[in-house]
Design a protein around this nucleic acid. Structure first.
Length: 300
DNA sequence: CAAGGCTCCTGATAGC
DNA sequence: TGCTATCAGGAGCCTT
């Protein structure tokens, strides 16, 4: 078993959202313990202000934009609606546990709730974090709201209001390789290193393929593969999700993904048999089939 | 304004 | 045995 298989991308975060939405609404925060100051990020006033504001807060719906989650909280008098914003980063987990549960080594924030279970934020690498932010109208035209701090995050490809044509136009105007664009949360959200590699493998496209060289049909096909690979993971997570158990959690192996490219260097491509290679890219790894996903001629 | 690189962090693992 | 280097990567931030 690998030491960390979570790496939350859209499907993982969405499963966590579903767990939260089945437990949090209606519950209230009785006490707050910030166990690691770094777990409170982008918070005006820092951990102290966070604790003050979230104490006594009552939760409403839990929403998601890309890899960000937020729980709407009742406003104080004469204030706009606010939200508890949560990001899992690389290794974050949100656990609902009884108050008596032993404290996890990497517990960063503890919210004691009035209900049966408390909310714990666990995060080994502390790339994730929580904060409270204003909710603002997403567009001037409707009643959709999202935290002001994530207004720049694009819709995800499973969002019914994701605009395929607009995405295609924006993407093809980019002067960069396709994978860099897929990882840009301001262009399309929810995709991380794993699903980017998987979708590119399914599309038989090299990660350095120029965005501008893609035809509209190529983009549409890529979107289809992104959606397929994410939906499959979401189904898997959804079916193994047990609301009666803990769990809004990201246990290791929770998603037993069947991956075709990511992490499979040295193993045969399940389409052609060539050995999958790992290459350094953007301070991370890229996995591809050297035969199915040939390097563009224009790239060294 | 966009592209692209740097940096934060902890723990497992490999190599000497 | 014990040290050091490497790797894992989301996303804000900064430079070009």
């Amino acid at each position: 078993m690998q030491h960390c298989t979570l790496m939350p991308e859209l499907p993982e975060v969405e499963v966590v959202r579903r767990g939260l939405v089945s437990h949090l609404p209606g519950d209230t925060v009785q006490a707050v313990s910030v166990l690691h100051p770094r777990a409170i990020r982008r918070q005006i006033g820092g951990p102290r202000a966070f604790s003050t504001e979230i104490s006594g807060a009552r939760f409403h719906t839990v929403s998601r934009r890309g890899k960000y989650l937020w729980a709407v909280i009742s406003p104080e008098p004469h204030r706009s609606y606010r939200a508890l914003v949560m990001h899992l980063g690389m290794s974050g987990q949100l656990l609902l546990r009884s108050a008596q549960a032993a404290q996890h080594v990497h517990a960063r924030v503890h919210l004691a709730l009035a209900g049966d279970q408390d909310l714990w934020f666990i995060d080994q690498r502390t790339f994730g974090g929580l904060y409270v932010d204003d909710l603002v109208a997403a567009t001037s035209a409707d009643d959709e709201h999202l935290p002001a701090s994530i207004a720049h995050i694009a819709r995800d490809p499973l969002d019914p209001r994701f605009d395929d044509d607009a995405f295609s136009r924006s993407l093809r105007r980019r002067h960069s390789g396709i994978k860099r664009a897929l990882l840009d949360q301001a262009l399309i959200s929810g995709i991380g290193n794993i699903y980017a590699d998987e979708a590119l493998w399914r599309s038989a496209v090299h990660y350095e393929r120029s965005c501008a060289a893609l035809r509209k049909g190529d983009v549409q096909e890529l979107l289809t593969h992104v959606r397929d690979v994410m939906s499959a993971a979401l189904d898997e997570g959804g079916t193994s999700f047990d609301a009666l158990y803990v769990n809004v959690n990201g246990q290791s192996g929770y998603f037993d993904r069947s991956l075709d490219a990511y992490g499979r260097s040295g193993e045969p491509c399940s389409r052609c048999g060539a050995l999958i290679v790992r290459e350094a890219f953007m301070n991370r790894s890229s996995f591809r089939c050297p035969t199915c996903q040939r390097r563009p001629r224009s790239i060294g």
